[in-house]
Amino acid sequence: MSIYKNIFLLFLLSLGIFTFSQEKKKFPNVENVLLNIKPDSKLDFWVLVHNHYGKGKEIKVSGTKKDYVPQFSGFNLRPGEDSFFYIVYSSGGKISYITELKDLKSFIGKIDNVDEAALSAVLEGYMIDEQFVDVAANYYEDKTNYYLDLGKITSTECPYQKKHFTLTVNKSSGIITNVKENGTYTEVYTKKCTNNPRLQKKQPEETPKETTPKKTPKKRK
């Protein structure tokens, strides 16, 4: 009986470890994700700047910073918000700027952590949705993969719509190996949407027509 008891305890222990490994963690915000970039190239310095409503703020400085020219455009990780990010970096004494999202790929290089895995998914059209963290801004991992729950804008027409997905990203290759769609999690109708159910008025019911013939008045003699 002791053998069976030990096997049962081992099973419970392994189940507990598996359950613990599946515990999801949340991405705090997009700034935090960008802060955890680890460039593969050897750089003199790099600076991450957040411009919010026209005011630029350095939120990370790595290395010995040199003078650079402030940028007035950049990549936006929060659709609908008047803000953007850009990166300034120097390699071999030459200063360069990243103001477009697509240029992040070469800057990041090899995927070193879950934050870079999330950014690689953002480059594929997904989003870290800070407004809906529980469904579209969290992750868990095992020895082989990162499992990211992220959002995606699937319609900018009426209605504005977002869906959420679970993406499997291989840790060794950094490649998205599987995408599972989990359905729509937000759907917004605006006043301009002609197909807004709340704006569609019911057609008035037609009154039934009279079926009895009217009496013709008698002619007087």
Rank of each mutant, 00 (worst) to 15 (best):
2 S>N: 07
2 S>A: 08
3 I>S: 11
5 K>Q: 13
6 N>S: 12
9 L>R: 08
11 F>T: 14
12 L>Q: 07
16 G>Q: 08
16 G>L: 11
18 F>R: 06
19 T>F: 10
19 T>A: 12
23 E>P: 00
24 K>P: 04
25 K>G: 01
29 N>P: 06
30 V>H: 04
31 E>Y: 06
34 L>N: 01
36 N>W: 03
36 N>V: 03
37 I>H: 06
37 I>N: 05
39 P>H: 08
40 D>A: 10
41 S>P: 05
41 S>Q: 14
44 D>G: 02
44 D>F: 04
48 L>C: 04
51 N>P: 00
52 H>D: 14
53 Y>E: 15
54 G>F: 03
55 K>S: 10
56 G>I: 13
58 E>C: 07
59 I>G: 00
60 K>P: 00
62 S>K: 13
64 T>A: 09
65 K>M: 13
65 K>Q: 14
72 F>I: 13
77 L>Q: 02
78 R>W: 11
80 G>Y: 08
80 G>H: 09
82 D>F: 03
86 Y>L: 02
87 I>S: 11
90 S>K: 06
90 S>E: 09
93 G>A: 04
102 K>W: 10
103 D>H: 13
105 K>I: 07
105 K>N: 11
105 K>W: 03
107 F>D: 08
109 G>T: 05
109 G>H: 05
109 G>K: 03
111 I>D: 04
113 N>I: 01
118 A>I: 05
119 L>Y: 01
120 S>N: 14
121 A>G: 10
123 L>R: 08
125 G>K: 10
126 Y>S: 01
128 I>G: 00
130 E>A: 06
131 Q>D: 15
132 F>E: 08
135 V>P: 02
138 N>T: 07
139 Y>C: 00
141 E>M: 10
145 N>D: 11
148 L>P: 02
152 K>D: 07
152 K>Y: 04
153 I>D: 08
154 T>C: 08
155 S>R: 15
156 T>S: 10
156 T>I: 12
157 E>M: 06
159 P>C: 08
162 K>P: 05
162 K>R: 15
166 T>D: 03
166 T>C: 03
167 L>Y: 02
169 V>H: 01
170 N>F: 06
171 K>E: 10
177 T>M: 10
178 N>C: 08
180 K>I: 14
181 E>P: 14
183 G>S: 07
184 T>C: 09
185 Y>Q: 02
185 Y>L: 04
185 Y>C: 03
186 T>M: 14
186 T>P: 04
189 Y>Q: 01
191 K>D: 14
191 K>A: 07
192 K>I: 03
195 N>H: 10
196 N>Q: 11
198 R>V: 02
200 Q>W: 01
201 K>L: 08
203 Q>P: 02
205 E>N: 02
206 E>P: 03
207 T>F: 05
208 P>F: 00
208 P>S: 05
212 T>M: 03
213 P>N: 00
215 K>G: 02
216 T>H: 03
218 K>Y: 00
220 R>F: 12
220 R>E: 15
221 K>L: 12
221 K>P: 15
